[in-house]
Design a binder for these strands. Structure first.
Lengths: 249, 249
DNA sequence: CGGCAACTCCGAACATCTTCGAACAAGCCG
DNA sequence: CGGCTTGTTCGAAGATGTTCGGAGTTGCCG
């Protein structure tokens, strides 16, 4: 059996059966557990299933509404702080959807800046802060991500300009393309890049090697990257080679 | 069974109220009580349930943002309820800024409707509700009123349509003109009226005789008024004479 | 009502088993 | 041969069960 065919059957088994164990799959397809793990890792990278210990589960569309549990919060907090340091008083910044960018917003408290965002968590965070001019893009509410998407948001961005756009991402592909997992968010990200003088990407070290299903842009569209990954990291080094300014958090 | 799958089932059981005891769950999934405790602890850390002695409970979202000082809240609550009764399932409604209109939003919970609003308190209220399609107008945030105003909101309204617009007001002048106190909100109200099939005004009895500084529109632009003022009230009677439908809360 | 004992429940700590992924070696095929 | 896939090994990390001291709850008695 061809590897690609086996991977497709594994994906079917996981999706239809609700879950499947590594041992069970290895036995079913008569391959080693290591091979199943590699298949599952690849399918997980492609966002087609969710890897869990012992096997895999179908990708779940229910990120808990209360985003209380943020993964890798310490790293994201440091990245947010470093990104906030790039903003000068009086500037206008665009803040993308995501938990990393939310950390950026938390570090803008008390700063005299204008924030443009479709991130409802950022709105809640900065609403009490009288120093900050807050502009909300319109759009349809996506509950799972607390974001606004759609035509209204894109139209609004066409009428706005900013000094810098801070974007998040699902992952950085090996060819340094910025990837996202949700297709409706991509036009917003692209519109933000077009409306801002500079584009700064916020990614924690785990994002290198991860990937989403949609390509947002190539590294040439980025002006800077804020990350906690060491400069020696091959992905980071490649970005620097591509001319992207590196800010270490 | 995979650990992740078990945790998922435990969460379902707790949320649906089938069972919540540690001993019972341990027996159901054939694991030790310690393992159930660890699962519950993890789910509690993630904010998905509330740990209690002997088991777990579904997380109850407290009403955090009860507007600390809403004047005439009982009247507004009744007006909101009566206004919500005017909405049919599947309809699209626009909800204006204000505390009375917020009460309307509270009575839309669980209804299968589309809500278009620039009222951030309404967004917070309806965000957790999966039945409701929520559309946010863009704009600049006005902190004092938790609202969005400006060009972006007006542009967005020009691209939208609704079955009914629910408006608030600062007062009803003696000549029955609808008055507002903040000039930046008036273009939004007018745009909502233009974009909706019907316009319904929500005013408590105290609004008759009060006035704002800006005239929004005359009574001819109103299709209905929801109020707690008695029909014998001279202002209400005059509205009826002017051809406005009266809904008594 | 206050105090006390019995019971239950909790979570830390430890030992054991399972699972994971990196690294290397072997096999396959153009 | 060189690239790709697969299998094996192995140390690290995760998951589970058991034990045990301590905290919370209940109920009884004075």
């Amino acid at each position: 059996m061809l590897p690609a065919e086996r991977r497709r059957l594994i994906l079917d088994a996981v999706v239809n059966g609700h879950s499947a164990g590594v041992v069970e799959l290895a036995s079913r397809f008569a391959v080693s557990e290591m091979t199943v793990r590699r298949d599952l890792a690849q399918l997980a990278r492609e966002g087609k299933l969710t890897r869990v210990r012992g096997g895999a589960m179908r990708v779940q569309d229910e990120p808990p509404f209360t985003q209380i549990a943020v993964e890798r919060l310490p790293e994201k907090e440091r990245i947010g702080r470093a990104a906030a340091a790039l903003v000068a008083d009086g500037q206008t910044v665009m803040v993308d959807v995501g938990t990393t960018t939310l950390q950026l917003a938390r570090h803008l408290h008390g700063r005299r800046v204008t924030v443009i965002t479709s991130n409802l968590a950022v709105v809640d965070e900065l609403l009490p802060d009288p120093a900050i001019e807050l502009v909300v893009l319109g759009g349809i509410v996506r509950r799972n991500y607390r974001s606004l998407v759609g035509m209204l948001a894109e139209d609004a961005l066409r009428q706005l300009a900013a000094d810098v756009a801070f974007l998040g991402a699902s992952g950085i592909r090996e060819d340094l393309a910025v990837m996202d997992s949700t297709i409706v968010e991509v036009p917003i990200k692209r519109a933000m890049m077009a409306a801002a003088e500079r584009t700064v990407l916020l990614v924690d070290a785990a994002k290198f090697g991860m990937r989403g299903s949609v390509r947002v842009c190539g590294p040439d569209r980025l002006d800077a990257v804020v990350t906690d990954a060491p400069a020696a990291h091959p992905g980071v080094d490649a970005l620097v080679q591509a001319g992207v300014e590196l800010v270490h958090a």
